[in-house]
């Protein structure tokens, strides 16, 4: 029996990178995955292909995480179809790297809306359904920069720092409903987000990673599988660094 057989999972921001990998790994492990993206139909081909390969099932679900009403409606549909939501992975995120003095107000607002407020709002929506079954695992994707800080990422790190604080408090509040809330904090990861980074800079970053390599989306996905599964049933309110023991 697979670790997540029959569990219903909702993952935001699955059109690429870490989110896409998390959705795939959940499906590989037997989960029924509702994979979210903003752009209508953009996940259809990928989902069809995966559904032929794995025992889990991936259903694309389209909404903008900053559109509360639409999000609520779509989550309600997931609930109606399954009468349960076991796992929520708040992964959707955006990043603008700007130095203090050049921070644009619109970018600040957008980052907080997507990276932080949507996490709080979606957690609030989904937790209500998890309460009914007195069970659930919520996993928030934070970032290593929220723990250690990073030059040029003051706002991004602040949005993720807020996610970590929210995770810890939500874990305390929702524990009585047997809902666990944890965060993962990926370090430098091999996704589209680093394609514009210079080789020199990248190498310097890698030199600071004790395990000597850049992280892969699968590294993060594996930790999410663990936190989603009953193997972590006594773990809540934690922030799991997926950073290869980085020194920042």
């Amino acid at each position: 029996m697979k670790e997540l057989e029959g569990k219903v999972a909702l993952v935001t921001g699955t059109s690429r990178g870490i989110g896409k990998c998390i959705a795939e790994e959940l499906a590989v492990n037997g989960a029924i995955v509702y994979a979210n993206a903003r752009k209508e139909n953009c996940l259809n081909d990928w989902a069809n292909e995966l559904n032929q390969k794995y025992s889990g099932t991936i259903y694309p679900i389209y909404f903008d995480v900053t559109d509360f009403e639409k999000m609520k409606l779509e989550v309600y549909k997931v609930w109606k179809e399954n009468q349960k939501i076991d796992v929520l992975v708040n992964n959707a995120g955006i990043e603008y790297n700007e130095n203090i003095g050049m921070l644009k107000r619109e970018h600040i607002s957008e980052m907080f809306a997507v990276n932080t407020i949507s996490v709080i709002e979606l957690t609030q929506i989904v937790a209500k359904f998890m309460m009914r079954n007195k069970k659930g695992s919520i996993i928030n994707v934070a970032s290593v920069v929220a723990r250690y800080g990073s030059s040029g990422q003051s706002v991004y790190s602040a949005t993720k720092g807020a996610v970590i604080s929210f995770t810890k408090s939500a874990a305390k509040e929702l524990g009585k409903y047997k809902i666990r809330v944890n965060a993962v904090a990926p370090g430098l990861n091999d996704t589209d987000m680093i394609t514009e980074t210079s080789e020199d800079y990248l190498q310097r970053r890698i030199d600071n990673i004790a395990l000597g390599r850049i992280g892969k989306p699968k590294d993060v996905a594996n930790s999410v599988i663990f936190l989603a599964s009953d193997m972590s049933e006594y773990i809540s309110g934690q922030v799991l660094g997926i950073d290869g023991a980085v020194c920042m």
């Binding site: 609520k72 309600y76 609030q124 209500k128 309460m131 009914r132 009585k176 409903y177």
Partner: peptide, 21 residues
């Protein structure tokens, strides 16, 4: 707060609605 959320959840199920926050 716990009984209130239980109440809300039961009413939502019973009447097939979703309360605004």
């Amino acid at each position: 707060s716990i009984t209130q959320m239980s109440l809300i959840n039961r009413l939502e199920d019973c009447f097939d609605i979703m309360f605004e926050i």
